[in-house]
Each structure stands twice: as C-alpha cells, then as structure tokens.
Design a protein around this nucleic acid. Structure first.
Lengths: 225, 225
DNA sequence: ATTACTAGGAATCGAGTAG
DNA sequence: TCTACTCGATTCCTAGTAA
C-alpha cells in the first residue's frame, strides 16, 4: 500500500514514473531489491503496469491501482475535513418555568441521556438567551454531528426527538446543549444540562453571561468497537 | 502509517475512537496484541493520544498525527486530481513562410528537442489556424505541464524559450505542439512538429482540418531517477 | 550498466499469558 | 474482563550475485 502511494507520488506529475529500480528505490527509501520486489508484487496485483524502456522503466498506475488510492484518499478526507473548530455560544442566564426539569426527568429521555451522553442529568435545565452573535453562531450547530435522543410516548402523551451536543460550561463542567426539534422557546434560547446543578456549582445568577463551548466532535464516550 | 490511517478512519466521525484493544484490532484487521503495540508505538511517536476509560479507551489523533495524514492526503491529491482528460485541438492547415523550419533547425533548440521530446524533428513546422472552439480550448493547454525548451543565444541573436506539449496528430503520429513564449503568430495559430514530415506522411493539403490530441501527461520518457 | 533470484538476518506478528 | 508482556512463527528487507 505505502509502496503504491510512493509510486503515485512519482507519477503525480506526468501520470507515469520513469527510472531504474535503483533510482526508484532511492526515491522510495528502500533498497534496489525491495523496489524490484514491490514492482513485481504490485504488477501481480494489477495495480501498476510496467514497460521496459532502454533508459530504465516506465511505470504507470492502473485503473484498479487508482481505485485503491482513491479509497485511501476518501477515508483521509473524511477524517481531515471533518469540522474542527469548536463553537462558542454566550448567553444570559434566565429562569424558565421548570418545564425543562419535567421533560428531562421523563424516563424515556433519561435512559437515553445516560446511555448516549454518559451521565444522568441533574433534574433541571439551564436556560440561556443568546445575544445577536450567539444567535448567528447557533446556526453552526447544524454542522456538528448531533447525539440524537429519540422521541417516545408514555401512553398519555408523546415526547419529540431532541438533538444534543456535548458542551463545556464556563470551561469547567461537561454537559450538553439540548435542541428540541419542536421547542417551546424561540431560536434565541438554548437549554443546557449537566450531571450536576450548574447554577449552584458555578454560583450563577439570572442575568449573568454564561459561556458554552461546543466541541466539533460531540459523540459519546462509549466503545465504537 | 497504515495503522494511523486506520485509526483516523475510526476517528473520522467524532474526532476520537473509543473501544478496547480487541475491538480496535478487529476493526483494523489485526490481532489484539498488534493493536496494542500500534497504540503504544503511535503514542510514543506523539501521533495519537490515549486516555483510559472504564469502557475501553479513548484515542485521539494529535496535531502532529494529523500533519502526517495531511501530508499523505496531499500527495494522493496530487496524483488523483491531476488533469486526466486530453485536449483536442482542431485547426486548418496553412503554409507559413518557412520560419518554423529555420527556428527548429537551430542547434540550440534541436539538441533540446532530441533530449526532452525524444525525437529529432523533421525540419519544418505544420501551422494550424484554430477555429473558434479551438481557440477556447487552447487556453486549457496552460493546465498541462509543458516540456520547457530553454532560450539561448548563438552569438549573433537570441532565441526565446518554447513550451512543448506532446501531441498525437490525426490519431497516428506522435509529435509536439510548440508554443513560443513570444510568437510571431497570433493566438489562433499552433505549430506542430514531429519526427517526420506530417504533410507527406498524412497526405495533407492546405485548408484541410487537422486534429491534434494533447494528452494530459506530456513529459518525456526519460528517467526521473 | 540493468532486473531479480537466493539466503540469511531483521522486523513484525500473534498465541499464550501475567498483572 | 482489560492491557501489554514474552517468545516462537512468520514476514520482510537487504547483501550478494546471476543473468
């Protein structure tokens, strides 16, 4: 694989590489014998084509070889071009009507919080009213992979799905921003949950400005394997 | 290296991978022992960071690791996104004043043609006047790597540098398109040379339309190593 | 000069297993 | 369970060299 990549490097300019096994070996950082073996193996796999030339050899990468490289390229792109910058939201703390506590205490939500966020939320949400800049930035949340909390019904009524984004409150406490798919608040409000009571832990009062950092990778700390 | 790529795959979605060495091993197609060794080695190289978690382990790719991957990504891009399509130019044959023959017969040019194009040009150029579509396409020549023929002086006068592009004339004869950096012709004319006389070989007469294919890779068949 | 074979040493892998 | 060690098996690399 890496040998194929090195050859692709040498083919990048013209579509084919020219040279002796010794020269290629030097460029690839291996011995002449190894370069020769690489060429034999890659040709056997149908990933490159070779044609003898008096001055050395012409090596081209076949369609199949390009496919191999393209697959590698694609997987690197997925990693490298994923959103990188974290999102910082600032808003003023205000007291709601306590519906937040009602909702997140529902077993159907709570079980999913524990499973997908990794913590059992303190029974209450912190409501923040975003300033103008914050409202603009909130749009950027869409570019981050949400942790989905599914809707459910408890028999008497239904509860809608909720998107969560891992968040760090005031640089100290790890929690999550909730975005209800059909919120009772407007676009200028975000709700934040955490394993502990944020107001008490941080000594916050209504009207204070609170800073939330949403890292670009917001998925849960559980095994992907 | 490939181990780092595999890990990057697993980190693509969230920025970090979670799991046990056994699980990671399975995803990477190696044994648990090898996965463990990979992690130790990559961490030693500073390419990844690890943090133990009760459910397994959290693995992130460091800035330095990302740089490694970005370098690999860039070299793949150079190969995969190099221009692929060939350029087809069509124009009507006309007879010039014979200056073409004078220029390419100069030893200073001729030696370079032999060395860089791999043939000794027939002493004469074929002049083609491009149609409207051809003029538009000619611009695309700039996207192809030229074979540079350097300017020189023979004592009495100077000769400017010339760009060459390998070309196939009427699908039959391999030659080259010349683009003089300071041409005596306008932008609607191209000059073509080949090892043999094109008019005679192809039975062409003034006014006929001639088709030239310029492949995307136009460098010479000599050792790059 | 090449390319590529052989042979032996070096690096790598994974089964077993300790902590 | 987990991670990571030892160690024999295997793979891989290169020096020497044939063609």
């Amino acid at each position: 694989m890496m040998a194929l990549v090195k050859l692709a490097d040498l083919c990048a300019k013209t579509g084919e590489a020219h040279g002796t096994t010794r020269g290629l070996a030097k460029l690839m950082g291996v011995s002449q014998q190894t370069a020769s073996r690489y060429l034999i193996e890659l040709e056997g796999l149908g990933l490159i084509s070779r044609s003898r030339a008096p001055e050395g050899e012409r090596i081209g990468i076949t369609e199949e070889g390009s496919k191999e490289l393209a697959a590698l390229y694609a997987s690197l792109r997925d990693f490298l071009e994923r959103p990188k910058a974290e999102l910082v939201l600032e808003g003023r703390l205000f007291t709601g009507l306590g519906e937040g506590a009602y909702y997140i205490s529902q077993g159907g939500y709570r079980r999913q919080f524990v499973e997908r966020l990794g913590f059992d939320p303190y029974p209450g949400t912190m409501n923040l009213r975003l300033d103008g800049r914050g409202r603009a930035r909130r749009m950027l949340l869409d570019r981050i992979d949400p942790i989905m909390i599914e809707g459910f019904s408890d028999g008497s009524r239904g509860f809608g799905p909720v998107k969560c984004y891992r968040a760090i409150v005031e640089d100290r406490i790890e929690g999550a921003v909730l975005v209800a798919m059909r919120s009772h608040y407007g676009d200028d409000v975000i709700e934040v949950i955490a394993p502990i009571g944020l107001r008490e832990a941080l000594g916050l009062r209504d009207g204070q400005t609170v800073r939330i950092r949403v890292p670009p990778a917001s998925n849960p700390p559980r095994p992907s394997a």
